[in-house]
Lab assay of single mutants.
Amino acid sequence: LTVEVTLDGRRIELHGLSEEAHEILRHALERNADDKEIKKILEELRK
């Protein structure tokens, strides 16, 4: 799955996400998580 997010003013596409990762990010974006929170989530998903 692919998600497009804006971090530090740049639009980035995240490819190859699992369903779980996609859901976690989608929920964070829906509640307008800040860049710091999104980065933390991405860091966790990379593990």
Score class of each variant (00 low, 15 high):
34 D>T: 13
31 R>K: 09
11 R>A: 06
41 I>C: 02
6 T>P: 02
10 R>M: 15
41 I>L: 10
21 A>R: 02
18 S>I: 02
28 A>I: 05
39 K>A: 09
5 V>H: 02
4 E>P: 03
15 H>P: 04
23 E>H: 12
37 E>C: 02
29 L>E: 03
14 L>R: 01
35 D>M: 08
37 E>Q: 07
29 L>R: 02
23 E>G: 10
18 S>W: 04
25 L>E: 00
47 K>E: 09
39 K>C: 09
32 N>F: 10
8 D>L: 02
30 E>R: 04
18 S>P: 06
42 L>H: 00
47 K>F: 15
9 G>F: 02
29 L>S: 03
11 R>F: 10
8 D>K: 02
29 L>M: 11
28 A>S: 03
14 L>C: 08
28 A>R: 01
30 E>I: 05
15 H>T: 14
46 R>Y: 15
31 R>E: 07
15 H>V: 13
12 I>V: 13
19 E>G: 08
37 E>L: 06
16 G>L: 06
20 E>H: 11
45 L>Y: 06
4 E>Y: 13
19 E>P: 12
24 I>E: 06
13 E>D: 07
10 R>F: 15
34 D>H: 07
43 E>N: 07
3 V>N: 03
15 H>E: 09
17 L>S: 00
40 K>Q: 14
17 L>D: 00
39 K>W: 12
46 R>E: 14
19 E>R: 08
26 R>I: 13
7 L>Q: 04
12 I>C: 07
39 K>R: 13
47 K>R: 10
36 K>S: 14
6 T>V: 14
8 D>F: 03
42 L>T: 01
34 D>G: 13
28 A>L: 09
24 I>L: 11
43 E>P: 00
17 L>A: 01
1 L>Q: 09
1 L>D: 05
35 D>Y: 07
7 L>H: 03
36 K>D: 14
38 I>L: 12
46 R>S: 09
12 I>D: 03
24 I>F: 07
32 N>T: 05
6 T>Y: 13
27 H>S: 15
34 D>V: 05
37 E>H: 05
1 L>A: 08
25 L>K: 00
32 N>M: 10
2 T>G: 05
45 L>K: 01
25 L>Q: 00
15 H>W: 10
40 K>C: 10
37 E>N: 03
47 K>N: 11
46 R>W: 15
11 R>P: 09
33 A>K: 03
10 R>I: 15
18 S>L: 03
14 L>K: 01
4 E>C: 14
26 R>Q: 11
16 G>W: 09
27 H>Q: 14
40 K>A: 13
29 L>Q: 06
43 E>L: 10
17 L>M: 06
8 D>E: 07
36 K>Q: 12
15 H>N: 10
33 A>L: 10
34 D>R: 04
35 D>S: 14
36 K>C: 06
21 A>G: 07
47 K>W: 15
7 L>F: 06
33 A>N: 03
6 T>H: 08
44 E>R: 09
2 T>D: 05
41 I>N: 00
35 D>W: 10
25 L>I: 13
47 K>M: 15
46 R>D: 12
11 R>H: 12
15 H>G: 07
17 L>T: 00
33 A>M: 05
26 R>P: 00
13 E>L: 14
15 H>K: 12
10 R>E: 15
41 I>S: 00
11 R>N: 10
26 R>N: 08
35 D>T: 10
1 L>Y: 15
20 E>T: 11
3 V>F: 15
32 N>D: 09
3 V>W: 09
39 K>G: 08
32 N>C: 07
16 G>V: 04
4 E>L: 14
6 T>F: 14
37 E>K: 03
19 E>L: 12
24 I>A: 07
34 D>Y: 04
5 V>T: 03
15 H>M: 10
29 L>T: 04
34 D>F: 04
47 K>G: 10
10 R>A: 10
17 L>W: 03
1 L>H: 12
7 L>S: 03
4 E>V: 15
29 L>W: 06
31 R>M: 11
9 G>S: 02
31 R>V: 06
27 H>M: 13
42 L>E: 00
30 E>T: 05
3 V>C: 07
27 H>Y: 10
11 R>I: 14
42 L>S: 00
15 H>C: 07
2 T>R: 08
4 E>I: 15
47 K>I: 15
31 R>P: 01
7 L>R: 01
37 E>W: 06
7 L>T: 03
41 I>H: 01
19 E>Q: 14
38 I>S: 00
2 T>V: 12
26 R>T: 14
19 E>I: 14
35 D>F: 08
26 R>C: 03
6 T>I: 14
35 D>K: 04
27 H>I: 12
9 G>Y: 02
14 L>P: 01
26 R>W: 07
18 S>G: 05
45 L>I: 15
10 R>G: 11
22 H>A: 15
35 D>E: 15
44 E>V: 09
28 A>W: 06
12 I>R: 02
10 R>Q: 15
36 K>F: 13
23 E>D: 07
32 N>R: 06
23 E>P: 00
11 R>Y: 11
9 G>D: 06
37 E>I: 08
41 I>R: 00
2 T>P: 05
19 E>C: 09
22 H>G: 09
4 E>T: 15
17 L>G: 01
47 K>V: 15
45 L>H: 04
15 H>F: 10
15 H>L: 07
20 E>V: 10
31 R>G: 08
13 E>K: 13
6 T>G: 02
12 I>K: 03
3 V>Y: 09
7 L>C: 11
25 L>M: 04
8 D>W: 01
39 K>V: 09
33 A>R: 04
13 E>I: 15
22 H>M: 14
8 D>A: 05
21 A>S: 08
4 E>M: 12
41 I>G: 00
37 E>F: 06
36 K>A: 14
12 I>Q: 07
22 H>P: 01
31 R>L: 09
12 I>M: 07
22 H>R: 10
42 L>Q: 00
16 G>E: 05
11 R>K: 13
11 R>S: 06
34 D>W: 03
41 I>E: 00
4 E>W: 14
33 A>H: 03
24 I>N: 05
45 L>F: 08
44 E>F: 11
43 E>R: 12
14 L>S: 02
7 L>W: 04
38 I>H: 00
12 I>N: 03
16 G>Q: 06
43 E>F: 07
24 I>S: 05
45 L>T: 03
27 H>N: 12
32 N>V: 05
21 A>W: 15
23 E>Q: 12
30 E>Q: 10
25 L>Y: 02
45 L>A: 05
14 L>T: 03
38 I>Q: 00
36 K>Y: 12
43 E>D: 12
2 T>Q: 07
47 K>Q: 13
23 E>R: 15
33 A>V: 05
15 H>S: 13
41 I>Q: 01
11 R>V: 15
6 T>C: 14
39 K>P: 00
32 N>E: 09
1 L>T: 07
20 E>P: 04
2 T>S: 11
17 L>I: 05
33 A>W: 06
29 L>P: 00
45 L>P: 00
40 K>I: 10
13 E>F: 14
18 S>K: 03
7 L>N: 03
15 H>Y: 11
44 E>N: 09
47 K>S: 13
23 E>L: 11
10 R>S: 13
20 E>R: 10
21 A>Q: 14
9 G>K: 01
30 E>P: 00
21 A>K: 03
26 R>S: 10
32 N>K: 12
21 A>I: 06
1 L>N: 08
33 A>E: 05
22 H>N: 08
12 I>L: 07
19 E>H: 12
37 E>Y: 06
4 E>F: 14
39 K>E: 09
13 E>T: 15
32 N>I: 05
27 H>A: 15
14 L>E: 02
13 E>G: 03
17 L>K: 00
17 L>R: 00
13 E>Y: 13
43 E>Q: 09
43 E>Y: 09
41 I>F: 04
43 E>T: 07
46 R>Q: 14
43 E>I: 09
5 V>C: 07
40 K>N: 08
34 D>K: 08
3 V>Q: 05
3 V>I: 15
44 E>L: 11
9 G>V: 02
43 E>H: 11
20 E>D: 09
14 L>A: 03
17 L>H: 01
7 L>K: 02
45 L>Q: 02
17 L>C: 07
9 G>H: 03
46 R>K: 13
38 I>M: 10
22 H>F: 15
3 V>S: 05
5 V>N: 02
16 G>T: 04
28 A>G: 01
20 E>G: 08
35 D>H: 08
14 L>H: 02
4 E>N: 07
28 A>H: 04
21 A>D: 10
2 T>A: 07
25 L>W: 02
30 E>M: 09
25 L>D: 00
32 N>H: 11
19 E>Y: 14
3 V>D: 03
5 V>D: 03
26 R>K: 12
43 E>K: 10
30 E>S: 10
4 E>K: 06
18 S>R: 03
39 K>I: 12
29 L>D: 01
28 A>T: 02
19 E>A: 07
18 S>Q: 03
35 D>R: 04
36 K>M: 13
46 R>I: 15
5 V>M: 06
36 K>G: 13
40 K>V: 11
16 G>I: 04
24 I>C: 12
42 L>M: 06
26 R>M: 14
10 R>V: 15
5 V>G: 02
41 I>T: 01
24 I>R: 11
31 R>I: 09
43 E>G: 08
17 L>E: 01
29 L>G: 02
29 L>I: 14
26 R>L: 13
14 L>M: 05
40 K>F: 11
15 H>R: 11
46 R>C: 11
29 L>K: 05
41 I>A: 01
5 V>L: 15
4 E>G: 05
18 S>V: 02
38 I>Y: 01
46 R>P: 05
18 S>T: 10
27 H>P: 01
12 I>H: 04
38 I>E: 00
38 I>P: 00
40 K>D: 13
30 E>H: 06
39 K>T: 09
25 L>S: 00
19 E>V: 14
30 E>C: 12
30 E>V: 06
25 L>R: 00
37 E>R: 02
19 E>N: 10
10 R>W: 12
43 E>S: 10
11 R>D: 08
44 E>K: 11
1 L>K: 10
25 L>F: 04
20 E>C: 08
5 V>P: 02
37 E>T: 09
13 E>H: 11
